[in-house]
Design a protein around this nucleic acid. Sequence first.
RNA 1: GCUCAGAUGGUGGAACUGGUAGACACGCAGGACUUAAAAUCCUGUUCCCGUUAAAGGAGUGCGGGUUCGAUUCCCGCUCUGAGUACCA
Length: 953
Amino acid sequence: MDYQFKDIEQKWQQFWADHQTFKADNNSAKPKYYVLDMFPYPSGAGLHVGHPLGYIASDIFARYKRLKGYNVLHPMGYDSFGLPAEQYAIQTGQHPAVTTEANIATYRRQLDQLGFSFDWSREVRTSSPDFYKWTQWIFMQLFNSWYNKAADKAEPIGKLVAHFEQNGSAGVDAVCDEEVAAFTANEWKAFPNEEQQAELLKYRMTYLRESTVNWCAALGTVLANDEVKDGFSERGGYPVEQKKMMQWSMRITAYAERLLQGLNTIDWPEPLKEMQRNWIGKSIGASVKFPIERAAHLSQLSTQDIEVFTTRVDTIFGVTFLVLAPEHELVPALTTPDQKAAIDTYIAQSKKKSELDRMADTKTVSGAFTGSYVINPVNGEMVPIFIADYVLAGYGTGAVMAVPSGDQRDYLFAKHFNLPILPIIDIQNIETEADPTKEGKYINSGFMNGLAYKEATAKVITFLEEKGAGKAKINFRMRDAIFGRQRYWGEPVPVYFKGDLPYLIDEKDLPVVLPEVDKYLPTESGEPPLARAKDWKYRPDQSAPCKSRGGESKQGAGVAYQYEHSTMPGWAGSSWYWYRYMDAHNDQEFASRKTIEYWKDVDLYIGGSEHATGHLLYSRFWNKFLKDLGLVVEEEPFKKLINQGHIQGRSNLVYRLIDEMGRGTNTFVSHGLIKPYKTSPLHVDVNIIENDILDINKFKSWREDFKDAEFILENGKYICGVEIEKMSKSKYNVVNPDDLVARYGADTLRMYEMFLGPLEQSKPWNTNGIEGVFKFLRKFWKLFHDEQLNFRVADDAPTKAELKSLHKIIRKVEEDVERFSFNTSVSSFMIAVNELTDLKCNKRAILQDLVVVLSAYAPHICEELWVLLGNQPGTLSYAPYPKFNAEYLVEDEFAYPISFNGKTKMNLNISLTLEPSAIENFVVNNTEVQKYLDGKTPKKVIVVKGRIVNIVL
RNA sequence: GCUCAGAUGGUGGAACUGGUAGACACGCAGGACUUAAAAUCCUGUUCCCGUUAAAGGAGUGCGGGUUCGAUUCCCGCUCUGAGUACCA
């Protein structure tokens, strides 16, 4: 039979599904290996040809590891909460669950036809109540925990309460809100419960507080920093403004240092680690308090000082002014009556400036004087206070000490406002710009004069600490993550309110299921969509008895409390989902201790780098938290991570001739001939084009108005123009895997996607060349068949040449897969099959091993041939990978390249047993070499055994 | 601006620790088979000069350097892509 990929692929996909061939065992004597893909959001558009790239790579790896004798966990699921389904629901009234279900069905069909070896019995969906029950449960653990800096880990809140009861707030070293109260043990015990709860909320790992959020009015929701790009929402591109709101937050900053340090222990791409480091943004410096000069108008001011953060506390004698962000809370109080007008104007001005303007315009210097002064703690000098929008309210303390001699922004500001610029290091050159040098000795710096950078910094910090005016401090750029979204299609937060205070619902009442609503929009009063749910209230007294506490059932008319109306953000479910795959159907725990101890962590994670500062950071955070509570065993969840590149679209263009009136005609000019004509380019469906040549008939029937189109051809063909851009429907450049599978089969598509180039490289999709892979598979099929296409393999002993081809590929694939170089293995498979075809090899001893080696890449055709070879159906996936034997590759001769001054001129066959001196002798006396030598004696002869001979003339 | 990644034929790419640059494939050209097409097979294909299948020369973004020998290492630059942005 000929290679009937359609029948073969359907048959084996069915077989794998029926026999659960890839079901992983939670208990095995084999070593474990966990291969994970970033699970997709099931969008309505389905998969395009770029999506499976990473899945194909991980599938090859997973299949390879099975052959190598590992117990492989390779699951798949759906990150199925998200905005598009909700937007669609708003437009159509269709429940997001319905849309999501339909989209998942499409995804599943598309994934299935590519022959992935997923263990579908473990499928997860973040929007399913069985799953989000545990997302809510983890939220509850976060609510019930605080971060103990002394232990450097999160601990149950009960431990903190016990401390309060014993010692009051003294001796607590926690990561918490800034304005926590100080109290004794007795005071604590005397607090009413509400006050205790309010105080505890300032310590919890997830907490409620008023924060400035990115509010997107068009989407009716709050966005995370990484969902905002240049002042616009990443999704939809709507304007985003700053707004103060009560919001759930996650105390990820507690883990800043551990998140940073952990990066050194994991095998991730360096650029990705760098992105996380920048995001965490650790800077080591000092905080300094500048006492406010007590001018008459400041008598009412509550605070004594202005605190700044600086990384160059050594330059403090060079401070000639202070700058506050316009939004700084002390600005109104500091402003003197005669400066009030100027300050108000400036604040109004900078408020008007959008985020975008502020970024675009970094050159113009602007600011205003408050009229007030502070005292420099090191020398008692009066320092004027300005406001300017180059200081950001959200970073550090929102105030900086300005050292114009060392900082360029301060320098420009000083020039503009005619403020003094004081050099503080002897070698500083501040003629035209600031000089931030750390070399040289200090001058104009009081007790630091004559010192070098290191001693000076140490000395000034000691001085400030003794005076109580400052201390060494580490500052992080990373902020706590806002955890609430004013949307419908997300996990409900398992919290209800008594007055203003949040309380967790009882664990036995999990999951809090998303209620039905009439519309998926915010209410008229601006409440989130969940506020629309009718009679959606929590009645703690009516909830069923809790067995673990042995409580009694109290039926009756309990008080009804309001649930939290915001839902969790998109990253909630994806921050722990890999644990659920370990034990996907457990209804007692998010995953059992036993399975977690077995699978531990993800050995290989493949996905896009766009998740660097979102999903991948939040996942590490939750993992560390779960580790602190002893719920999981590893500090880092993803041991090794590979970023697959992005597949860009490759658009094809036709060129429509424009007539004298400037109107488009129905004549199209081939790309190579457009120069003399006036044309306008037009996107054309890439699916009616092959090798950039337009199929004219298909073009005519593609769109009604082109049915009478005429063409100006070159060499009888219409050649299209090419442009690389994003893959999108409007550009007609979307290539659907379904079409390619129908035409060439999944095995061809899988191998072609790998053949395209290195996995980690981004590249435009180009279907040109897929034929080469298809031909290869047919050639492979033919090895097992005679001229009449009857299956025929011989049991003869293989020849040396055949064994050499086989063992070359056995070793090559091992090496390539281990270093994720899938493209080079595909080439090597082609070479092997070309060689065996030339050798007319149809020996079972060779072909059977070749089938095993290729099966990771092209599983369907290999399963079919495996059975034709007489093996049990379904055993191929767990067959042992053939053992490489170096003996078959041993050569006794090598064609040494002979080069003169590094230029290769010829090759000479020389025995590999010869030693360098003998080789030199042989080469120099060779008549051909003599010709090149032309009677001269070589200055030097370099011989590298088994590699090269270089003759220096 | 800063950080990171990259640049090799007409195209995708290969060359793993410095050792025959262009493997493998696409495309193109020519040929075989065929009434024709598809499929298949064969030959050629980095560029320049040139021919009897000669013999040369240049060549991995640009300019230097180290080395017997550099796509690979070092220095300086150009361009492309990604991330980030007044971070004190």
